[in-house]
Design a protein around this nucleic acid. Structure first.
Ligand SMILES: [Zn+2]
Ligand SMILES: [Zn+2]
Ligand SMILES: [Zn+2]
Ligand SMILES: [Zn+2]
Lengths: 151, 151
DNA sequence: TCCATAATGATATTAACTTTCATTCTCGAT
DNA sequence: ATCGAGAATGAAAGTTAATATCATTATGGA
């Protein structure tokens, strides 16, 4: 039996910050709180604009640096869809998944397939390739958008 | 029994150009010839620089517009690795494949797995998602680079 | 409280991509 | 073969996201 003990993401943030000799700031905590609450796949710009309302002084550079830090810590995952813009989703305590992205409306459906993950692992082993991370994305039409255009 | 009849890529290019009411140019043919010969995953800049030597007048904009056209025609496939820069590989007459990309040396190993493709298709069907294309990429260390750093 | 130094935010820079536009080229009609 | 409408080209400018710079501010251990 596997038990996941999930601490508050803010505690993990503080712990990671301390262990790296960094400093705890209101901006970092604010960004983590925001991302933990806002489900979805957000660009830096979206994060910036949403937070800027609450904290008027916030700068883009801080968002940029913080999401990079959070990615290293493992609190967020970076995903890149068809437009090539980096997006971030809160990852801490959530299982790995991949995406189907609708090229019309942009919605990102999430899927996970242990069978595919196993096959992946096997393929990598066969080549002596050490996988650090992967992405598996299907682009096309979601049910809603396919329905509209169908004959 | 499946038979692949592969015509000369230049013939396919000319045919596609004509059917779209476009015009045949030396630049377009040159780019197709170059890509058909140069195996690998090339950026626009790499294509531009390599061809520029032969054809001094060539402009970046033409490379940009041509690879886009070739992608639509199906002569090339666009792939994007970890650095986010678009790369193009000649695809005509070659089977679909996905990639394992070494984050240290940049080499892109190609793999294909009918089993994974089938699972993908099934997952998409279950969501009524119509797949237009997909990408499946593993990032990590190739055997060579993993060997160097191992203890 | 002090202070070394990390963090911040405005701004500048970079890099890739994309558009603009005046000129040139292509190709079917003549 | 030549003409001409319209596609294609290439230089340059514009766009966008990502990243670097730097003077100033804030943090947290001593
Ligand atoms: Zn996966
Ligand atoms: Zn997701
Ligand atoms: Zn595939
Ligand atoms: Zn490839």
């Amino acid at each position: 039996m596997k038990v996941n003990i999930i601490m508050d993401p803010l505690l993990l943030l503080r712990q990671s910050i301390k262990s790296r000799g960094l400093k705890d700031t209101a901006q970092r905590e604010g960004i983590v709180r925001f991302l933990a609450g806002a489900k979805g796949h957000l660009t830096q710009e979206e994060i910036f604009k949403a937070l800027r309302e609450r904290e008027p002084g916030l700068g883009r550079a801080t968002v940029f640096r913080t999401v990079k830090l959070l990615e290293e810590i493992g609190l967020v995952t970076r995903v890149t869809f068809a437009d090539g813009v980096a997006r971030y989703e809160f990852a801490y305590g959530r299982p790995h998944h991949d995406h189907m992205i609708c090229v019309t409306c942009g919605v990102a459906l999430e899927f996970s397939s242990p069978a595919i993950e196993r096959l992946q692992t096997r393929l990598a082993k066969a080549r002596n390739f050490k996988v650090r991370w992967h992405r598996h994305e299907m682009f096309g039409l979601c049910a809603r958008c396919a329905g509209k255009n169908s004959s």
